[in-house]
Design a protein around this nucleic acid. Structure first.
Lengths: 126, 126, 126, 126
DNA sequence: GTGGTCTAGACCACG
DNA sequence: GTGGTCTAGACCACG
C-alpha cells in the first residue's frame, strides 16, 4: 500500500506522513486502528526505523496519531478535538501558493474546481 | 513590494520566485517588463546576489522570465507558449496533497471552494 | 579518469558534465552506479564543491543522474524514459551549426561521415 | 534574411558570424561579394555597430572575410588558402561533443547519418 | 552596467 | 556522511 519514492526530493518522513493521512481520509485507517510497530513498518518499507519513528512523532504532534507506551501507535479519534485553526491557516497559505502556481501555468479557475471535485470524489472529503 | 521572511524555513529563492509569480498574476509585472538587476534586487532585499540569480534562473527554466545577458531580466510573454502539461500534472499532485491535508484538519469541501474563490478574487485568475 | 582542462574557456561544470556523459555512453558508468560525492569529486578534480554540485544538478535536470538527498548521486536508468524530443531538436540545431562550420572550412561530407564513424567506433553508439 | 535571437544565450556576434557563414555555404554570398557596411548592417539588425564590427573582425581572423580600408568588407576567395587544419581539429572536437550528447539522448547512428544527409542537401556541402 | 562562473567556507536537514 | 542553501566576494564576457 504505502509507497516511498526514494528519488523524490521530499523527505521520507514527509512522504510517509502524507500516506498515512491519506489512508485516514480514505477510511482505510480508522480511529482506534493500530498502526504497524516502528520496526515492522520500517521492515515493510525498507526504511530506517528512526525515520518511521520520526513520522509517528510528527503525526502525534499533529494530533493524528497517539502512542501508548508499551502498547503501540493508534489512529486518534478526532471527534473530541477542536479544529486546529493555526494549522488550517498554514494549509491555507500552501493552498494559495499552489493556486497561484496553477494560474501562472494558465490553469483556469474552472479546472481548479474540477480538480477539487475529483479529489473529493476520490477520497470522500467532508 | 516583494517581501522576504527571513525566519521562514522556505528558502529565500523560493519565496522570491513565488512573489514574482504573484506579481505577474496580479498584473503588477507584465510581459516585457524589466526586473531589477540581480545586484539591485539583492540590495533591496538585503540578500546575496547569488541567491537572486538562482531565483531568476529558476523562473527562466519555468519559462516565466527571460534574461538577455549583459542587458537584464524580463517578464516573458506567455502568449506564444503551449501549456506545460508536465508541470501542470506536478502542480495537480501538490494540489491534491494540500487538499488531503486540509481534509485531515476537518476543513470541508465547501470551505475549500470558498478559499479558491477568495484567491481568485484577490489575484484575478482566469 | 575524468579530466578538467583549467585553461579551456569552456566552464568547468560543462566539461565535467560532458565527461560524465561520455563515461555513461562508454559504459564505464552504468545505470545505478553511484558517483563520487560532491565533496569527494571536488577534491579529486581540485575544484570547488559548488561547481561539482552545479554539474550534478544540471545532469539531473537532463535526466542523466538522480540524487537522493543524504545518500548520494546515481546514474539514472534511462530504460523507462521516453525520448526527450525537445532536447533532441536542440542537439540537432547544434549539429547543423557544427556541420556548417566544417563545410566552411572545406571539410567534405565524406570526411564528416568518417568522423561520425570513428566516434561511433570509439564510444559505441546505438 | 539574417536573424538575431536577442534572448539566446549565444552572443550576438557569434550568431551573426554563423549566419554569414551559412549564407556563404549556401551560395547566397559568394567570393568577392561586398557585405553591408558596419553601420548599415547594425541598422538593419538593430544592433550596436561595435558588435557588427567585432563579427567582421572575427571572420577576418578566420579568413572568411577581408576588409579593405576605406572601401568595405568582402567575402574572401578561399581558392588560394590551404585548409586550416588547426581549426578543423577544433570543429572535430565540437562535432564529437554533439554526437556524444545525441547518443546520450538515444539518437541512433543511423539518425545522425540522416541528419548529416539532410543538412548536406539543404546547404549543399562539398 | 549586466548576468555568468567560480572559489571559500558556513550552517542545516536528512537518515 | 550526504546534498541543499546561503553569504561574501572575485573575475570575466558582452555590448
Amino acid at each position: 500500500m504505502v509507497q516511498i519514492d526514494k528519488t523524490s526530493s521530499k523527505p521520507y518522513y514527509e512522504q510517509l506522513a502524507l500516506s498515512i493521512k491519506q489512508e485516514i481520509v480514505l477510511g482505510i485507517l480508522q480511529a482506534g486502528d493500530q498502526l504497524p510497530s516502528v520496526r515492522e513498518m520500517a521492515k515493510q518499507l525498507l526504511m530506517n526505523p528512526n525515520t518511521v519513528s520520526k513520522t509517528y512523532k510528527l503525526l502525534e504532534q499533529e494530533q493524528v496519531l497517539v502512542t501508548i507506551k508499551g502498547k503501540g501507535t493508534y489512529v486518534k479519534d478526532r471527534q473530541d478535538l477542536p479544529r486546529d485553526e493555526l494549522r488550517i491557516m498554514q494549509i491555507k497559505e500552501q493552498f494559495k501558493e499552489v493556486v497561484i502556481n496553477a494560474y501562472q501555468l494558465e490553469v483556469s479557475t474552472k479546472e481548479l474546481q474540477q480538480w477539487l471535485e475529483s479529489i473529493t470524489n476520490e477520497v470522500g472529503g467532508n
